[in-house]
């Protein structure tokens, strides 16, 4: 069972750099403070890119979870 309950889910499976980050940045702008975004990705670069992104944006990187053939990342809007 998921540790975090997302308010929005971004399906970025199959997308490679930079599309997951670009789409994440766009969706994060529409979220309200405290809402959680789940990003499902398959690109190994995303694991570095998302924490780097939240470090700059001030949002919170909650963590990741292994999905079935993909990884889910969870971000919390600041």
């Amino acid at each position: 069972m998921a540790e975090w309950t997302p308010d929005e889910v971004l399906d970025a499976r199959g997308l490679s750099c930079p599309m997951p980050i670009l789409k994440t940045k766009k969706i994060m702008k529409t979220l309200k403070s405290g809402q959680i975004l789940e990003i499902q990705g398959t690109d190994p670069g995303t694991r570095n890119d998302l924490p780097a992104f939240t470090e700059r944006s001030g949002d919170e990187f909650l963590g990741e979870e292994q999905g079935d053939g993909y990884i889910s990342f969870f971000l919390k809007k600041a």
Binding site: D11, R13, G14, M19, K26
Partner: peptide
């Protein structure tokens, strides 16, 4: 990103 939506490919389970 604004104008085109693409479907993710089928992922092998």
């Amino acid at each position: 990103i604004e104008h085109v939506t693409s479907k993710p490919p089928k992922q092998k389970a």
